[in-house]
């Protein structure tokens, strides 16, 4: 994968978190790879996870199966970007 693609996916994941959870741009800009998500962001409950996954699907043009969704992919921002990158090239 080209670095441009990774930047693009990183930006898309940030934008989806901003839009679905109603976070400010400053807040999502400050996310680092190790920033914890699920359990650390009160906005990210199970209903929001559903919206987050669907929005990622729509913006990246991928299909996420429900059995692929586990706690690990939502643990940190970096894990979510890695998951999204894996889907986008897969």
């Amino acid at each position: 994968m080209l670095p441009d693609d990774i930047d693009q996916i990183d930006a898309t994941v940030r934008a989806v978190l901003r839009d679905v959870l109603g976070l400010s741009q400053e807040r999502v800009d400050a996310f680092r790879s190790e920033t914890p998500l699920f359990g650390a962001l009160p906005e990210l409950d199970s209903m929001a996870v559903a919206g987050l996954l669907t929005e990622l699907e729509e913006r990246l043009g991928v299909l996420i199966e429900d059995d692929e969704v586990d706690g690990e992919m939502l643990e940190t921002f970096g894990a979510l970007v890695r998951f999204a990158s894996g889907k986008a090239v897969g």
Binding site: D45, S46, M47, V49, A50, G51, L53, T54, D66
Partner: peptide, 13 residues
């Protein structure tokens, strides 16, 4: 799909 995913997410929780 969206409705079902919401249910699956809630059930998981």
């Amino acid at each position: 799909r969206d409705l079902l995913r919401t249910r699956l997410a809630a059930a998981k929780e």
